[in-house]
Amino acid sequence: MTSTVRTYLGRLLPQLIALAIIITAISIIFPGFLNLQIQNGRLYGSLIDILNRGAPVVLLAIGMTVVIATKGIDLSVGAVMAICGAVSASLITSGHSLVETLLVTLAVGILCGVWNGILVAVLDIQPIIATLVLMVAGRGIAQLITEGAILTFIDPGLIFIGSGSFLGLPMPVVIWLIFGILVALVVRQTALGMLVEAVGVNREASTLSGVFTPVLLIAAYVLSGLCAAIAGIIAAADIKGADANNAGLWLELDAILAVVVGGTSLLGGRFSIAASVLGAVIIQAINTGILLSGFPPEFNLIIKAAIIVFILVLQSPRFRTAFTYVSMPRAAGKPTEREAK
């Protein structure tokens, strides 16, 4: 058991170090950064803020990780967020109960996932193109639902999801924590994780070994759609309205980035949900940190780009090879020559 914990920590080490460096750096520039206060039974502080603000990207990253592990990508999550936000706002304003609203919204997210999944698994369309369709059309659909306006609502239940708190933590944080742990447990305590990795590495060989590839692929996109739906609800609840134009805009890119920063290869295969969540938190920490550190907000994107490039360069194959050159043979091409003996 201890060895599994150790390998697990080993996997997350680069992300943990990166996060530690970023947090240390921010707290040096902005001394109050690490402060936490309890008001009205709820934690306040910049750290909590990061976890709260990061909720949508964290959620998207959870689904995106599994999709990327299957050698796929889901560009539509931002648009699906917008659709789901619009659906929940329009349902709640037209008098449906909170439970109905939530269930239907989640179902819509799942439906979007099924659509993507069928395109990828059954019609065998390249994931980046398959999900591009919904990415392009999805925002139009969301606007169709809200009829171009920002659809506001006042239902306290729905708003609670965005700004309420539970056990001292903001609701969005509670939601992604529980959901993330749930997904990670389901994936790792069953054989799902291994099967997903097998499909991601070699779809044909996995199918021939009896893995039910199409269902697995569709399930991955469904998970991604579900994550986008939850993120969409949170985003809408947060601003008490559905903004079809801006909800989740470009968040698919942040989510992909989070997965990559988390060390999961875009080529599929090995994945870690915890690492992706850390990746998303890192990205949000950078965002918040820049804001707090007193840099002019104009510099946000540049600093973010620089830090991300730095992290990615550290992970790049070429850079790693340069470090491990001594211990690694150059014969990447045909290792059989050595192994046969």
């Binding site: 875009l266 104009e298 510099f299 994107l301 973010k304 991300i308 070429r318």
Partner: peptide
């Protein structure tokens, strides 16, 4: 090419950078 990184990610960072320069 030289860092063998996916174009998707590199140009995504490029997008942030260019947009950031515009903001500056």
């Amino acid at each position: 090419h030289h860092l063998e990184m996916p174009a998707f990610i590199v140009t995504l960072a490029g997008m942030f950078l260019a947009r950031g320069m515009a903001f500056v």
